[in-house]
Design a protein around this nucleic acid. Structure first.
Lengths: 198, 198
DNA sequence: GGGGTTCTGGACGGACCGGTCAAGAATGCG
DNA sequence: CGCATTCTTGACCGGTCCGTCCAGAACCCC
């Protein structure tokens, strides 16, 4: 009944994410995104409404993808729970160190730039953080059931600590810390988690 | 021999910092700063050269001030070293929670927005982080001398971990974590530091 | 194939912003 | 007091950017 869209919405979101991620919100131009996607500005505005709305879509999409990815890394059998936690913490350190462009995490970057002025972005970032904490907490509970972490420790507190360490690793990475420093932090963080006595 | 300046350079830097801090680099206009200081744009450009140069001055100044402030909190007798560390960690959590505007730390905010594209800012942020780590490490060594932290632990590793936790607290605060969450992280982080046996 | 509908693309408008410039003001020296 | 020198101010310029608009294209249904 009408002319069909020539582009895939998800591909546009992905391309826009790359741009916003590299340049930040304010420094990214709509025309950059138009060029990156091959779309005209008219299509972009017709489909997404405007820069702020587009960014919110991108950000929402990214938060979901990110949390899902972490979820896949952390969910599984109790027997492997500690190995998964350990692997995840090291993976974040390695990924941060490998990010030589210091792009950091879009989640953190966007929160830093926009949380103060955009309620929607702030809420979404907060929800994503809570989801991450939940994932870590579930894994820690699994560790406790399997006897890899002290059963009398509060899993919620430990999860919050681990989450803070992970975010801190990214912040330090963005400031230029070396890979050794970052993996060292990962190692130390895992080492100080309370193990069962005996 | 010539007309003297009517303004104080430090006051201009402070006012500019407030603006950059609230709005970020890209979103802050030179005219904002001119208005905030009461100066004309010509004076601003004459004294500082341009937006990027001004920001670098502001950032450099802020890093120095920030590190100095932390230094004053952490330096002192061995006997109080652990109390100082504890107070500092809780203070960061409280300050972050009190920052309802989610401005976060200018250090982290600027690093997030500009480290990727401005080598000078990146270097300065890295130096500031290393200075902070050093301060924490010195305090931890004092704790070990006084018997408040296990002597066989590596103070450098613990300092890096503590620093990561502090930066993580700020990142989570920016994302909207509650004061309870943040002070909880502070408490847990202090609790997991290795204490001397016995 | 015609008509209605939606998509496309790029030119355009209006606002904004970083940086310049020139005219004037303040100062100290001779 | 005049003069050289530096600071101040705000109008102005060139460029940029968000968002709009419209003419045309693609499509489906009848």
């Amino acid at each position: 009944m009408a002319r069909p869209r020539k582009f895939d919405e998800q591909q546009v979101l992905d391309a826009a994410r790359e741009r916003f991620w590299s340049g930040g919100y304010a420094a990214t131009r709509m025309e950059d995104i138009a060029e990156a996607t091959g779309l005209g500005k008219g299509s972009l505005y017709g489909a997404f409404g405007g820069k702020q709305e587009l960014f919110r879509r991108v950000f929402d999409d990214h938060c979901g993808t990110f949390v899902d990815a972490v979820g896949r890394q952390l969910r599984g059998d109790d027997a492997d729970a500690y190995a998964r936690l350990s692997a995840h913490v090291y993976a974040v350190a390695a990924a941060t160190a490998a990010d030589t462009a210091h792009r950091g995490c879009l989640l953190a970057k966007a929160a830093a730039e926009l949380a103060e002025h955009d309620e929607v972005v702030a809420k979404r970032a907060c929800a994503a953080m809570e989801a991450l904490k939940s994932l870590i907490e579930d894994d820690i509970k699994a560790c406790q059931r399997h006897g890899d972490i002290a059963a009398d420790a509060d899993p919620g507190s430990l999860a919050a600590l681990v989450l803070a360490v992970l975010r801190g690793i990214e912040a330090l990475g963005k400031a230029g810390a070396t890979e050794e420093t970052l993996t060292g932090i990962a190692r130390t963080a895992l080492a100080v988690l309370p193990r069962p006595v005996g």
